[in-house]
């Protein structure tokens, strides 16, 4: 599903974010990407949704080398890869319903499709009754749920989450993880960058640890955050 082969990434200012990374994530898998700040977690995710192009190597997503994708094809890749961020990225002047529907609007979905899919998305994240609320009326956890619903509403096969619990308290964080695990069980590949050790240790998922742009550990199942 996602295959990074000998990927290196050096930013224009000379910072080496990733060095010779090889990583294969199978379809339907849940993988944590951990590491300190600046270890290359966000860069790794950015390469998958083609926010950047690697300096060397190839990034195969769903059988396609995204590094070689012409710019006009990038939007179509992004419809298959949902992305969730720490800061939620909701539009404050739009309601919850409109924020989720926005993802359908921009891909040219019909009105009927929108009215069918938005409630399903909101139902999935447990916010069916909050459609008319504005982001400032929601808690941080609810905002993150809206952002997950928006990332999922186009039915992507991959969900990337970059520190999705970074702004949340432990209980709410755990609820979000439960939600992501649930989504993964419905055949969506989930890759989550985090440095929340409690979450990693409580789940029994694959753990890929990065340090200074290299993969230093790849525990296929139930890896502990602090393990050597």
């Amino acid at each position: 599903m996602i295959h990074l082969q000998s990927v290196s990434m050096i930013y224009p200012d000379g910072t080496e974010a990733l060095r010779d990374v090889d990583l294969l994530i199978e379809r339907g898998q849940f993988a944590f990407i951990t590491g300190h700040s600046g270890s290359g977690k966000s860069t790794l995710l950015g390469l998958i949704y083609r926010d950047m192009v690697p300096t060397a190597g190839s990034v195969i997503v769903d059988g396609q080398d995204v590094a070689k994708l012409p710019p006009r094809r990038v939007p179509f890749l992004r419809r298959k890869v949902g992305v969730v961020f720490q800061d939620f990225g909701l539009l404050p002047q739009k309601t919850v319903w409109e924020n989720v529907g926005f993802a359908l609007d921009v891909v040219g979905a019909s009105r009927r499709e929108k009215h069918r899919k938005v409630p399903i998305g909101l139902e999935l994240v447990g916010l069916a009754d909050k459609g008319d609320a504005f982001p400032h009326q929601l808690s941080a956890g609810e905002c993150q749920r809206v952002s997950i619903a928006r990332a999922l509403v186009n039915g992507p096969s991959i969900l990337l989450a970059d520190e999705p619990t970074g702004n949340l308290d432990p209980d709410t964080s755990w609820e979000i993880i439960q939600l992501l695990l649930n989504i993964c069980q419905q055949d969506t590949t989930v890759v989550m960058a985090t440095h929340d050790r409690e979450i990693v240790d409580r789940t029994n998922c694959r753990l890929v640890q990065l340090a200074q742009g290299r993969i230093v550990r790849d525990a296929k199942e139930g890896g502990k955050y602090d393990a050597p």
């Binding site: 949704y49 939007p75 419809r79 990225g89 539009l91 993802a103 921009v106 928006r150």
Partner: peptide, 12 residues
């Protein structure tokens, strides 16, 4: 930025 992330084309 959000439009680009959810797959809007540049024309859109």
């Amino acid at each position: 930025r959000i439009m680009q992330l959810v797959g809007a084309t540049n024309w859109f």
